[in-house]
Design a protein around this nucleic acid. Structure first.
Lengths: 120, 120
DNA sequence: TTCTTATTTAACCAGTTGGTTAAATATTAG
DNA sequence: CTAATATTTAACCAACTGGTTAAATAAGAA
């Protein structure tokens, strides 16, 4: 018998979500993602706007990279980082499951606004 | 002049996102959210399925609570926890910004599948 | 080859996380 | 009042985070 059939969600997917959410749980890293959504950047381009050492930014980049959110390409003596936005889909999907739990309420509320009495 | 006009995103919102994403970056806490999406639960109900001490679960609950994702109500000697799913909207919105970056590609891809040649 | 540029890696540090067990607190039950 | 139940809080610990500075590595420039 296969030994991990009992887990409905593979531990891998869980660990991956851990990594992605953790990667997003830092303002600097979210800004890096934002920059990379505009265009591919080198490490020093990415580091420029931040008031911290290049080594610190390098570490943040590594966190994003091991979460799979960015990809690295070497060109000459520079590394260029490329966003892999589709890697966010797991996180989006996870949260989206709970969207209906608040959307319901909002829908009900906007229903009330549209027809405050039995006017419809 | 107001001294924090230069920041386009208030630090508060940033810190809040930090907390929410951090709260989600743990499988145990995601499972707690899942349970609370079904129904309001007491601490011991929440702790039951987990192979860890009640004190540990209590700490996880506190993390979710300070992120604003759940709300606590005392009844007798039990605490009941209630999910506040709408508090996930900030995180969803943040990720959604980048959705188009991968959706574009998927759309293009499915376009290719629908009309593999110039058959349309 | 030697210098400079781009970046990583190593060593270190303070603070946080996620777990433990044991003690404290609050409330209901006898 | 006393005992049991539900939960938090405290004290502790190992591992991880996010930052630092300094040294190592890689590659283009002179």
């Amino acid at each position: 018998m296969s030994e991990n059939k009992s887990k409905q969600q593979p531990a891998d997917a869980d660990a991956k979500l851990d990594q992605v959410f953790m990667a997003l749980a830092d303002s600097t890293r979210r800004q890096l993602i934002h920059m990379l959504a505009q265009k591919e950047c080198s490490v020093s381009e990415l580091a420029a706007p931040f008031d911290m050492s290049l080594a610190a930014v390098s570490k943040h980049i590594k966190v994003l990279e091991s979460a799979g959110l960015i990809q690295r390409r070497k060109s000459g003596r520079s590394y260029y980082l490329l966003l892999r936005p589709e890697q966010l889909s797991g996180a989006l999907d996870w949260i989206s499951v709970y969207r209906r739990f608040w959307q319901q309420r909002l829908d009900a509320l906007s229903g009330l606004i549209e027809k405050p009495d039995q006017q419809a």
